[in-house]
Structures are given as structure tokens and as C-alpha cells.
Design a protein around this nucleic acid. Structure first.
Lengths: 239, 239
DNA sequence: TCAAAAGTGTTAGATATACACCCATGC
DNA sequence: GCATGGGTGTATATCTAACACTTTTGA
């Protein structure tokens, strides 16, 4: 892996031996029927044909990291404007058996309703797996996933990002069940309601559920600019 | 930047054009005289000679990312066993003017007493800067530092990592002042004492300060295995 | 009328916050 | 004795956690 690169210190081109290849791998989360799921792809060719892994790909020459991740997600799901968060770089020298490849992990949160509408045209086989039924994955992808889940659990308590996994309009019980599933912890319905409503973060849509065989619940929406305004006033989301 | 690399999908070597170079940059925090400081280095050669930047360097062929960061820190400070935490990868295509270079940021926390003993032999000029007096730095290093500080502020409230910036033996007021400085927020002495002591995280050394012109304070020590045991019992550090 | 979920009320206990006050030591 | 920080006590407001209870709706 001898190659030309630039010495940051001197600004000159020098011959030196360092590792080089970089990829991006995405942990794409979805929430459906009360279960947290991630989207895996089946490797179509090569040594590990048939095994599952995180969707990923290369970064282009003039592309920022976040842009590359957005592009890869668009290619896979047909969706733009996905909530995205870089995890970190994974660079164990042995993580990839055929050479030194460093990968940058991303967490993506998508609304399953959007995915169901737009996706399906992808070439490589993709499938949603419940978080508790993840198979052995290629390379170090199980490790990346472990890290990803820990990060999601931490982040979901610090910032209002869970909404990215729910439909535009949702009920408080749906929101609570999302938290219960992500944090793997039972919660108290009355207390949850009060806590979230007290934040004044949600817009009451004055609409109700339809076609449910029980009392219809109010629908709410999360709006990012409300959160921003509250944050400016010193509010800090905590769960 | 045409070069040979491995297609992850197929396992075959393919010719393709992607970016390649990777560096590590470290934000090294210290705490002295009630001030949070970071260690910057002066660029000795090249275009931006004389300007200050974060210490960093290359990753070796068969070296993990964390190991590379540890090695760089050892080269710069003479210290082993530094508390280290990866931030994330910074990869704006224009961040480095002379070519595509992605850098992986690290936060390092060191005890100034150790540094003062071991350091000083380094070739490149290094200097501690108070966090409120940071000059303009090379490349995107101010951005990396902004991210680093936000991360430190978040982490210091979630995990007992602040101790890595204090001497082995410290008083509760020192600890409180560290928190006040990092979080940029005044705190109440009695309440801080109770809160931290209630956690039963600190070892009371049954020792007192010496040579102080006021009532001598008790000295405490933080021990990681106590924290681990508490964590196993469900304790979670929060500030 | 029953099941299922929506939604309200109440209370005991734990935490946070603010601040008054005494203690020990060197100068 | 006074300045400086060490250290204790206490009252109030707020939040958490547990759970009893009423309401609405479709089947």
C-alpha cells in the first residue's frame, strides 16, 4: 500500500506507507408494530455470499462524509432527508480480512411508512430484522451495531430524535411504546403523558385516531422549530 | 488518486477512484489553577508555519485507531495510559487545502502534574492555552475543538471522567471547580458535596491538605473499579 | 356489556435549590 | 480577629413512581 500522499506538517508530497481505504456503514433503524428493527442487506457476491451485513459503500472523491451517507441511503431506500448521525470510525487493522479498510459508522432513523412507499427497487436484497433477532453479520458489523444501539439509547434520552421513527401524526402511547422498546424498559402511561406534555414540545393536532376498536386517542406532531425555540430559552430535553 | 483497493461486495481487487488519506488529531485537555486548557502545537514547517493547531499524525499500517492515538500522545507528552475517547471522523472535502485528508478526532484528558514531570522533551513547540483564549487554528481545527468541547461537556455529566484531569488526590472543592469550569456554570458548594458523596464513588483517604492558609480539606480518590461495581448494581452517574 | 386503550387524580418519597451558619487554620 | 475555604443543617419547591380510578369506543 505504498502511495503518494501529503505531509500535513510540511505541505510537501512525500512517499510513505500508511493505510488508506475508507467506507461508510449505516445502521438504519425503523419502528413497526412495536418493534425496533434495522435494515440489513445480503451480500450478493464474493466470499461471504449469502451473509447479512450493514448497508454501506464508498465515499466519492469530492464528497463530504455526511453527504456520502445521505447518498448511500438514497440509493438503498429512495429516501431523502433522513435523520442521520455519525457514530465514529471503526479501524481495527484486522476488521476486514482482505486489507486495511477503515469504516465510518452512521445511525439513520427512518419512518417506516415512507420506506414502504418509496423502497423496493433496490438491486441488493434488503430485509428488516427485529433488533432482538439479529443474525451473525459480516466483518465487525455486529460490533458496530452494538455501539450503534448504545448510542441510540443514550441519544434518545438527550434529544427529541425518536420522532424520526414515528409517523408524522402519532399518539402518546405510540411514543411511549417507542421509548419502551428502545430503552427496553416498561413505563407508566400516566406519568409518561404528563412528562412529555409538560415539555410543551408537541403540537396538539386536534385530530383523533380513526378505525380503532377503542376510545380514539389524540394525535400529535413534533416540530423541530418549536424544539429550537425552547432550547434557546434554556430548555433541555431529558428522559 | 487512482489506486488499487478492494471491493467489499465482491472481495475482488478493483481499480477505482476514492479518497484515501487519514490522520488523527487530538484535543488534549488539562486543568490547572482553575482553568481548563488544551495543548496546541506550532507548525514548524510548510505554508502555515508559525500557526497553531491540534497535535496529530499518521496511522501506521497495522495499528488500530485508538492505538495510534495513544502512540501519538506518548510521542508528544511522554505519557502512557492517558484517558482517550474517539470523537468522530471529520471529512469535509475541502478541510485540508492540499488534498483529500480525513481526520479522526480524539479527546484526551491528562493530569497536569504527570505532564509537568514527563514532558518537555518534544521536538515541536507545544503550549497550553486556556479554553477561553484559543487562537485561530489551522485547517478545520477550530471546528474540531468546538465539537470536542461540546462532547466533553456532555460526557462529563454522564460518566465520571472528570477525575482524569485532577491529581490522584483531590478535594471536593477542586472537583467542583473543575465542573464549574467545564460546564461554565456556578454551583452551590454544600449541594455539590452532598450530591457527589451520596454516590459513594469516592474513597475517603483520611488525609488532609497540607500547607494551606485555611482549614485543611479532606482528600479523596476516584477508583474505577468502585464505579464499575456500582454500575453493575444499576448505578448511573449523572450530573 | 365487555375489552382495550384513553385519560385524570392523588400521594409518598426522593431530589434539587437556596441559603444560613459554624469550624479550623494561617497571617 | 479576620480572611479563606471546609463543612453541616434545614426549609421549600419540584420531580418521580406507583397505582386507583373514570371515560370513550367498537365489537
Amino acid at each position: 500500500m505504498e502511495k503518494t500522499l501529503i505531509n500535513e506538517e510540511s505541505g510537501e508530497m512525500v512517499k510513505t506507507s500508511v493505510m488508506s481505504t475508507i467506507t461508510i456503514d449505516c445502521v438504519i433503524f425503523g419502528f413497526e408494530n412495536g418493534s425496533l428493527e434495522i435494515l440489513l442487506v445480503k451480500h450478493g457476491r464474493g466470499i461471504r455470499k449469502g451473509e447479512w451485513g450493514l448497508p454501506g459503500g464508498w465515499i466519492k472523491e469530492k464528497e463530504g462524509l455526511d453527504n456520502a451517507a445521505h447518498r448511500l441511503l438514497r440509493e438503498l431506500t429512495g429516501l431523502n432527508n433522513i435523520y442521520l448521525e455519525q457514530l465514529k470510525a471503526f479501524g481495527d487493522p484486522d476488521r476486514f480480512p482482505m486489507g486495511r479498510v477503515i469504516t465510518i459508522g452512521y445511525n439513520a432513523l427512518i419512518k417506516r411508512e415512507d420506506y414502504n412507499i418509496k423502497a423496493g427497487f433496490t438491486a441488493s436484497e434488503a430485509k428488516w430484522y427485529k433488533i432482538k433477532e439479529i443474525p451473525n453479520l459480516i466483518y465487525d458489523h455486529n460490533q458496530i451495531l452494538d455501539y450503534s444501539l448504545k448510542r441510540l439509547r443514550r441519544r434518545v434520552r438527550q434529544a427529541p430524535i425518536g420522532f424520526n421513527l414515528l409517523p408524522e401524526k402519532f399518539t402518546l402511547l405510540q411514543l411511549m411504546q417507542l421509548y419502551e422498546e428502545i430503552l427496553d424498559k416498561e413505563m407508566d402511561k400516566p406519568n409518561f403523558r404528563r412528562k412529555i406534555l409538560r415539555m410543551k414540545l408537541l403540537v396538539d393536532l386536534n385530530e383523533k385516531q380513526k378505525d380503532v376498536s377503542h376510545r380514539a386517542a389524540k394525535l400529535y406532531r413534533f416540530e423541530d422549530n418549536i424544539y429550537k425555540k425552547l432550547t434557546e430559552k434554556g430548555f433541555s430535553f431529558e428522559f
